[in-house]
Simulated scan of single mutants.
Amino acid sequence: MDLQVKLSNKIGVIVDSLKLPLYDGLKKVKEIGADGVQIYAVDGTMAPENMSPQARKELRNFLDSIGLEISALCGDLGGHGFQDAVLNEEKVEKSKRILDLAVDLGTNIVTTHIGIIPENQNSNIYEAMQIACEELGVYAKSLDAFFAIETGPETASRLKQFLDSLSTNGVSVNFDPANMVMVTGDDPVAGVKLLKDYIVHTHVKDGVQIKAVDPKDVYGFLGYGGGVDHEKIAEMVSSGAYFRETPLGHGKVDFLNYFNALKEINYDGYLTIEREVNIDPVKDIADAVKYIQQFKH
């Protein structure tokens, strides 16, 4: 393999992927050689309503003490994302509080899924998503922060069209190449170049598509069989009937060209490892850190 990319990006880990208590997971991330962590901040002890000022300070102090930083928070509220206008007021407010928490913890990025963006720009669902994202984009911008949509549920071109319709770049992109490979069949390298003005965070994950799958069956769509939660997605991944997540370098993501594309667009943010298969996550993630390190100076 030609490893001439020479990345200088920091390496992150979604700490929840390790399936350890938070502070144990943070220590493990440091031990396996990563620079930062992404943390789910939707429910439990990390939910913004449960994070007192003291708890926020303690977490920041602990991260500082072991030499880690937060690459992003994950604020994915599940269900249909922002497709349902009836639920959006509550979801937008919760998302704003997660953005506030992110800033308090020293990061300016919250990643999420917003639901599949419809092809029909005149649909009620498209309008509901647009109104919610416009409000969140303006709010994020006021904090000098980003609410970053994860790639995968739709093609990069449809996502860019949606983002271009908003008044700010406060809503941007968390680029996940494996979601494209496994679900839409979109080309991650072309996607990076198309979305270059919006990419603020990335996931490093690999996978293969076994047979074509309707993204609505993976991510859910309002009026189409109900929303699909993360446990269901993990079950689909592990069953391998339609697509399969793999260790880095064993799937269909062309990491050499993917990393080259990120370098070409001058992306200098985190490469954050996500692992949704839970057989031996600590070993998988440690191996993933080593894999990415091959491409660094």
Rank of each mutant, 00 (worst) to 15 (best):
N278F: 08
K27H: 08
L262W: 04
A85D: 15
E264M: 04
I98M: 03
Q294M: 10
Q4M: 05
I66E: 09
P48F: 06
L159A: 08
S157D: 08
E154K: 06
L99W: 09
I66L: 03
K296D: 10
Y219T: 05
A190F: 12
K160C: 07
V171Y: 15
Y139M: 04
K94P: 11
T151E: 14
V13A: 12
T107W: 03
N124I: 08
K160T: 06
L105E: 03
T151H: 01
E58K: 05
R97N: 14
Y198F: 13
V192T: 09
A288G: 15
E134Y: 03
V37I: 11
L7A: 09
E135S: 11
Q209T: 04
G25F: 00
I125K: 03
I199Y: 06
K30V: 09
D2C: 01
A132V: 14
D64T: 02
R97C: 09
G220I: 03
P177S: 07
L99Y: 02
S239H: 01
Y219I: 04
I233H: 12
V42D: 08
D144A: 01
G78R: 03
Y242P: 00
K290A: 15
D229V: 02
A212V: 09
P53T: 13
L105V: 01
V86H: 02
D197H: 05
G225L: 04
F243L: 05
G81A: 05
Y139H: 07
R158E: 08
G79L: 06
